[in-house]
């Protein structure tokens, strides 16, 4: 799942490890979220947003793809 976690994290000057420690997860989880390889729960999304001082919308919103099915 595409997201802007990496941009938001860099904007507040945190490394993956620091962000992970603040939320209480492992660095690997943050890395996988940034790569879009792991779908976090809404609770973890909120925790990330609190740390990077942004809303869910700003970090995780992606436009719906128009596949005309």
């Amino acid at each position: 799942m595409e997201n802007k976690v990496k941009i938001a994290r860099v904007q507040v000057g945190l490394t993956q490890q620091q962000l992970a420690e603040k939320i209480g997860v492992t660095r690997q989880t943050i890395s996988l979220i940034e790569k879009g390889k792991y779908n976090p729960t809404i609770k973890l999304c909120l925790d990330i947003c609190y740390v990077v001082n942004k809303t869910l919308d700003e970090v995780f919103w992606v436009e719906k793809e128009n596949d005309n099915k």
């Binding site: 209480g24 997860v25 492992t26 690997q28 989880t29 996988l32 792991y38 976090p40 729960t41 609770k43 973890l44």
Partner: peptide
């Protein structure tokens, strides 16, 4: 041993 809190690992 620490309790695992990371949801992905759980």
């Amino acid at each position: 041993m620490k309790k695992i809190k990371d949801e992905r690992l759980v």
